[in-house]
Amino acid sequence: MSAITDLSAYRRARRGQAVGVVLWPAFLAAAAATMVFFAIFDPTKLGEDDSPPAWLADRMTGYAIGFFFFWIVAAVSSSLTACLLAPRVAAHRSGRPRGRRSSV
């Protein structure tokens, strides 16, 4: 077990983890949401009067856009949670200036 020799390497690693921790649960949530949503709604019948916008006309495009939309929404939520969770505690305890909170 090595001690911390390089704080920036630690921060890089931590950031990498944060990306995984945010994107992965968002991916799971998006997969579930996509399944439920498109089981109920047919993407080609989403627009007004059953005529979807041209970019949605193909079902595969509809599914894909839906999936990425859900993923983005869930990832935004996850990353806000991540933002609100850890750094505030660290900032309080270490008494570091506010501007640097997000770095660890």
Binding site: M1, S2, A3, I4, A9, Y10, A13, R14, Q17, A90, R93, S94
Partner: peptide
């Protein structure tokens, strides 16, 4: 940084070795 936090940091960092 408290002692507990330092421990946590060491643990996470060390675990990153391949």
């Amino acid at each position: 940084m408290s002692a507990a936090e330092k421990d946590a940091v060491v643990g996470l960092y060390a675990a990153h070795q391949k």
